[in-house]
Design a protein around this nucleic acid. Structure first.
Lengths: 194, 194, 194, 194
DNA sequence: AATGAATGAGTTTTCATTCAT
DNA sequence: TATGAATGAAAACTCATTCAT
């Protein structure tokens, strides 16, 4: 299928660097055919993003609306994001490298913001319920969680982190551990004095 | 200077979208002159990256070799990275948007790995000295810290996070707080049971 | 056809002087189309050379494997080479002016060596059979024959030798005459005494 | 010296392919300096040609006006041309590859024509005196001699012919032998019957 | 649906040449 | 003499996109 081919090619070469012809070759069709299904190269990327992000968002919202305690919800969020890697590595590659920080993809940013917002609400509610420490801004906390997850994915994408099944479980645990319990051996004074 | 002009132009228009001629105009020179100093458009980006990263690395190493306790070192690392935004916003824009997803320039470049390694060593030593909690893998902890910082920078670059002076201080505090003390209100069981 | 257009343009303007666009105009297509069929301007020249040379080689081999006496074979070789001028003057122009002195395309190309080798074998066999004088090294004899032919073609290309039909026949006869019978009125002592 | 450097560079890379900067580097001077001595890249080539060709022409004329028999004169011509290779290989390379058949060098062609003319007169006189066989057109004979010599030089330039001291002597002998006595074992009928 | 030849605007890159110093 | 920064015309080449078949 053409979209799958596009995902593979964009994952391998990067969106800007890869040519429409490369996608066609990978898909085993003439490049003219792409234009029956997609109006432009950009639409390929947009479509990949949209078809994928929705299902991620749905999963996040499901977690968000569950009755579980916030730390457990956070754990689930990490699991959802990180486990995608094993199932769809190329997709993750593209989402992480091309879509997430491409300014020209404009409105899609809104949908990414949705993911942030879901995590943000989750943190907010956790703090309100006393399940999470009240200090950190929910928004920033969400950004930190997202960044940590994305960076681990990037490490896998670039082959700089081991990604065996146990490694994935380990990473999940590490993120949850660090984000929830912190790295400090003893409670630290977190007010910046510099 | 040509490199500065390149940073401004790439920050404004994106690397792929901007033309060599634009950089020349911004620098106030003929485009041919660029090729006296840089062998290609790509080399412009590479050079921007390397010159910046070198100074970042030097700063990280300085922190690493200081005698301060690990949590304080972590705080300094966060400060160094995040404060770059105010000093050199265009540079950060370019690094976040272009370098992070350039396949060829990619992270394979040793220099990025160096930054990870520095943080990793910092965590390792902190754990050895009992200043940091021993659970999380140093490598993963480093990735998480780096990801959190990069994502905050990304939020600023994309205008999705407020970046007033107080916001920057707040972000610093939040990262240190989350990374060091965790989000949890009470110590949590971090062993994954899924 | 694009290659024919290229031959005409290169013959008219010289390879280095003519632009890819000129070839496209001559062929009546957009210049971009050239790059569907040839990866570069150089490949145009290379292809012209190879396609031509192949047919020349085939002709030479046919002569070589004929049962005729070597002098007759030599005569045929001369005829083949020299008569190309009348049939395909532009092609000869390009080969003489561009290929013969292109460093990269150079003679290193096996194909040219093949032509020499064919003549060399022809001479060798002729000497073995007693049809040709045994003195001269076959290799050198081949070089001399080839050089004489190429120089006559060059004379025609540069307009320094008359090339009417009778002139061509005359040239053929002259080469065969000189090469086979020599210029000397009486047998000369050929051992160099300097 | 700049001209020597130019000869080396043109010999190595070809005139069109080599850049003025290459010549400057080879000469160990700034490329701007070239323009104090030569008004253009073309003038470099022209100058090389002129400074060299004159001495060749003088040598040829000296042979021509000697009282020796024509075969001996021919032998001397061959010696002059071929022995240049050992003394000035790069120069020969340039003359053979770039100058000899470059149409744009326009008027210099006249000077090349002089060389042909000298050999032509030599042959003519030889035939008139009965020292050379009367059949072949003097003009064509000159072209053949010149072509044979050039091709041998080319063989040396391209490393396809051995060029040890004995090889050079052998080549000289071969050219003289073939040109004067012919390749034929027995006198052949040279009238073309095809 | 499918092909792939054809287009051409848009870019990077090259390099001879100039000129202030 | 000598330098090398600076110029800019000129070219090669790319590639998304169109369209006849």
């Amino acid at each position: 299928m053409i979209l799958d081919a596009a995902v593979r090619v964009f994952a391998r070469d990067g969106f800007h660097t890869s040519r429409v012809g490369d996608v066609a070759v990978e898909a085993g069709v003439a490049h003219g055919l792409l234009y029956h299904y997609f109006s432009s190269k950009d639409e390929l990327l947009t479509t990949i993003f949209r078809e994928t992000w929705d299902s991620l968002l749905r999963a996040l919202r499901e977690v968000e609306t569950s009755r579980e305690p916030a730390p457990e919800q956070l754990r689930k969020v990490c699991a959802i994001v990180l486990r995608t890697w094993k199932r769809e590595p190329d997709l993750v590659r593209v989402l992480v490298r091309e879509v997430a920080r491409s300014p020209q993809l404009g409105r899609e940013v809104n949908e990414i913001a949705e993911a942030f917002a879901a995590i943000e609400r989750l943190v907010e509610r956790g703090q309100a319920r006393g399940e999470l420490r009240a200090g950190p801004e929910p928004r920033l906390a969400a950004v930190i969680v997202y960044g940590a997850l994305e960076e681990i994915l990037t490490g896998w994408v670039l082959g700089q982190l081991p990604d065996g099944d146990e490694d994935v479980a380990l990473a999940e645990e590490a993120v949850v551990g660090v984000i929830c319990s912190g790295l400090a051996a003893v409670p630290v004074q977190t007010t910046l004095s510099a």
